[in-house]
Amino acid sequence: MNDMRVAEARMQQQTDTKISARGVQVHYGDKHALKDVNVDILDKTVTAFIGPSGCGKSTFLRCINRMNDTIDICRVAGRIALDGEDIYDRRVDPVQLRARVGMVFQKPNPFPKSIYDNVAYGPRIHGLARNRAELDEIVEKSLRGAALWNEVKDRLNDPGTGLSGGQQQRLCIARAVATQPEVLLMDEPCSALDPIATGQIEELIDQLRTEFSLVIVTHSMQQAARVSQKTAFFHLGNLVEYGSTEDIFTNPRDPRTESYISGRIG
């Protein structure tokens, strides 16, 4: 009996649910964009959302940190819980939520400020540093975490917009990491980058997995296979299949998944 409890605890740790979504429905005006999505996203894991364009994967991603709130016509129903707390509860302030659930966007969008200020902005507004030295430390740690430190350490006061595309995206990752989130959402982070920069970002994602729960939307199935442990396949607003990446790619249960990964639909 004791053994069983230990085994159960180990299981619990392995499958520690960070985000759990139940019956999530999203409407954009009259359009039913997401239909009844149930999914448990694990901590310290990379989860990839794949699917053809317009399938709702980005919509679902933006539900997780309530970025859809900024769109007037968007309505979200159902329950999404972060560590067991419903993030669509009336008492939840989305600003507080977004400090815990960071986001990296499709197109690199650094602020038109210095590299330092880009990374320091989040810690500043959330009061994470008590003095300049602490802030410097956070900035350095974040830039190191985003594998950008060595490239920019001598020009922290240069504008962030002057970096190359791949560097800009890593700067955006550093900016997101600097606020010390628990979950990092990435919306097609490599779609605007060349293969070398993509490789660097993918390597970075693998490193970040030790600290965060990562959710990544991607159009590239190879990328999903390379970086993720769990994969969810969306199609026409439905979550068709969710499982370990290996299973999805080698042994899909649903015929639609099989068609998509073999390139017949998309």
């Binding site: 970025m67 507080q96 977004r98 969008n109 038109p112 902005y121």
Partner: peptide, 15 residues
């Protein structure tokens, strides 16, 4: 002003 700037700010938890 490009909307991506607003997204970026909201994304790091700015009000």
């Amino acid at each position: 002003v490009p909307p991506s700037i607003r997204d970026a700010a909201l994304g790091v938890g700015a009000s």
